[in-house]
């Protein structure tokens, strides 16, 4: 048995990332779309971890699955007219357009990637835990983007709360 363990892990996580991504495209029920997205994001988190990006993998789980997915589910619940969230009766008209465009985009990307033939250098093969190095880099080389993004998050918080506020009675139905 010369099957490498990391190869098996790669294909497992790649399948976990890619198959649900296509189910996001094909599933009819919007709640199922959200949960397929959850599976896909978990697969990407696994891919981060087998690439040695342990901090990013955990951040992916915390922020995407713990934060954004919950936000999306709240959005689904608050914008559904039908309390039972019934499935659509018919296949959406434009799904063929989406599939064709996606296939064309993938063909172009794969042609470019395989055409260039990036070489996998040794890279930072086994750097160990990355959290310390990431923290140091964020507070030295990347201190300006770090501060800018903090201000951005503050503005986003205020802006989102302002935009989503409830209108006064009778202003707009």
């Amino acid at each position: 048995m010369d099957i490498n363990m990391s190869t098996v892990m790669f294909f497992a996580f790649a399948l976990l990332a890619v198959f649900p991504a296509f189910m996001v495209l094909f599933a009819k029920d919007i709640v199922r779309v959200a949960f397929w997205l959850l599976a896909s994001l978990s697969g990407v988190a696994g891919l981060y971890i087998i690439m040695g990006a342990d901090f990013l993998g955990l951040t992916q789980v915390l922020v995407y699955i713990g934060g954004i997915l919950v936000l999306i589910l709240f959005g689904i619940m608050m914008t559904s007219k039908d309390p039972l969230l019934k499935r659509a009766r018919h296949v959406e008209r434009s799904v063929v357009t989406g599939i064709v465009t996606g296939a064309l985009v993938f063909a172009a990307l794969a042609a470019v990637i395989l055409g260039i033939g990036f070489e996998s250098g040794k890279g930072r093969a086994d750097g160990g835990a990355t959290t310390t190095a990431l923290g140091e880099a964020l507070l030295t080389d990347y201190i300006l983007p770090f501060e800018v993004v903090s201000v951005l998050l503050l503005f986003v918080l205020c802006g989102a709360a302002h935009v989503a506020r409830r209108r006064k009675e009778g202003a707009h139905a």
Binding site: A21, V24, L25, G98, G102, A103, F106, I113, S120
Partner: peptide, 22 residues
């Protein structure tokens, strides 16, 4: 590297398809 790039391209195309068809 190419394996990860292909996975990423698949995710990207699925995302494009979702944005267009949904």
């Amino acid at each position: 590297l190419n394996h990860f790039l292909i996975v990423s391209a698949l995710l990207f195309s699925a995302g494009i398809g979702v944005v267009i068809s949904r």
